[in-house]
Simulated assay, not measured.
Amino acid sequence: MDQLAAMATFVRVVDAGSLSAAARSLPSSLTSVSRQISALEEHFGTSLLLRTTRHLALTDDGRILYERAKSILGELREVETTLSRGCHAPSGRIRISAPTLIGRLLIAPLLAEFLRRYPLLTVDLLLVDRAVDMVEEDIHLALRVGHLPDSQLVARKLADLRMIVCASPAYLQRRGVPQIPADLSHHDCLVFSDAPDIAEWRFKEGVKAERRIRISGRLWVNSLDAVVSAAKEGAGIIRVPSWQIEADIADGALQPILVEFEPTPAPLQLLFQPSRLTSPKSRVFVDYLVERWRAANPFGVHAIARSKQ
């Protein structure tokens, strides 16, 4: 069995919705297409497709193979394109995910220059405030805030992000200034979240320990910009990244509180699938991002690590 050819046929079957439609588009015979799918299932020792007279669906194993096969075949096409042009410049599509605010303010403005530098590359930028499934969603690089749980992914730390608790001077004058984290239970808290629930804010307790304080928010918003705007108008207390509100604190629109209880900064990490760690297109994007962020110092830190060649 030509495994690459069989995987290409399998992807075509899934995209077309049936074996017969895939056979017509290849073009190939229905018997040949069916034989290749059966050979793949025998090779992997599992069923890949659920077939009925009117419907075709992926099994769980079939979905895994479909996503990985699409990625592998895409990478192969990019290699073929590069070699056929007789050049070694990075080429193809690079798919990146990032938290919405970081992506909008700190990545999107850098992409015009990146695309000018690398004219054979195209970029898909996915801005979502959730942990993406890099395999299923075909993500090459993902920026994520926080520590990475046990995973097959490879992480590179880019910066440390401080989380600041603050409110407008008008609110604090009206309601008083919290002296300890537990005082927040008597205040109006504004929470950044996709769904109203019980939130927890982390605070330092002692030298190394941390404590989580439950917050029952009066306002829940799935936009950091909107949360900050509401706080500046005196709606309540927020907990947001320090880099986002640096100017608001400088001009007095917001006032930091509970500073002595500020927890350890959260790492901003760039995640790779191990198979894509050495991809030229991934490497040049990481190098470019680090270069520009080191120059601009957007997070108020000066220790963004240099890229490893």
Rank of each mutant, 00 (worst) to 15 (best):
L106S: 05
V177L: 13
L158P: 04
I238W: 04
H186I: 09
Y288C: 09
R54E: 14
Y288M: 04
E80N: 12
A142W: 09
L153M: 05
S29V: 01
R211A: 15
A295Y: 00
S28N: 08
D197W: 11
I249P: 00
S193N: 11
P181M: 01
R202G: 12
A39D: 06
E136W: 05
A39Y: 05
T278S: 13
Q173V: 05
H140P: 00
V286D: 15
R292W: 10
L73Q: 00
I215F: 06
A23Q: 07
L190C: 11
M134F: 04
A155N: 03
T278F: 13
I180D: 10
L111D: 13
E137V: 02
P181W: 00
L110T: 03
G62S: 10
P241G: 14
H140L: 02
G92D: 02
P241A: 14
G92M: 01
F285M: 00
P178H: 00
R51Y: 08
V128E: 15
R95D: 03
T46P: 08
A6T: 09
T9K: 08
R95Y: 08
F192W: 13
S38T: 09
L224D: 11
L115T: 01
L258T: 00
T53M: 12
A247T: 12
A159I: 02
Q36S: 10
C189Y: 13
L4Q: 15
S216L: 13
Y66Q: 01
I245W: 02
T264S: 13
R276K: 14
A305K: 04
D287K: 13
P99E: 03
P280A: 07
G146Y: 07
L26F: 03
S47Y: 12
D2I: 06
D138W: 04
E233H: 08
A209W: 15
L158H: 01
C87S: 14
P274F: 08
A253M: 10
H302E: 14
H88Y: 01
A250D: 10
A155L: 00
F203P: 05
R162K: 06
Q309Y: 15
V227R: 01
L111V: 14
L58Q: 08
S97P: 05
R276Q: 10
K157F: 03
T264P: 10
E262S: 07
A295C: 05
Q244T: 12
Q273R: 13
I164T: 07
P280E: 05
R93D: 08
M7S: 07
L158N: 05
F10D: 06
R276E: 14
L254Y: 09
L40F: 02
P90Y: 00
H187K: 11
E113T: 10
R202D: 08
F44W: 12
D194G: 13
V154H: 09
V128M: 14
A266D: 14
S223V: 04
F261Q: 02
P181N: 03
A182P: 03
V221M: 15
D124I: 10
D188S: 06
E137C: 01
E67V: 01
F285K: 01
S279C: 11
A266H: 13
A89R: 12
T31K: 09
P256I: 06
H302D: 15
A21T: 05
A155H: 02
C166S: 07
R214D: 14
L65G: 04
S282A: 08
V228D: 02
G234V: 06
L184V: 00
S282V: 11
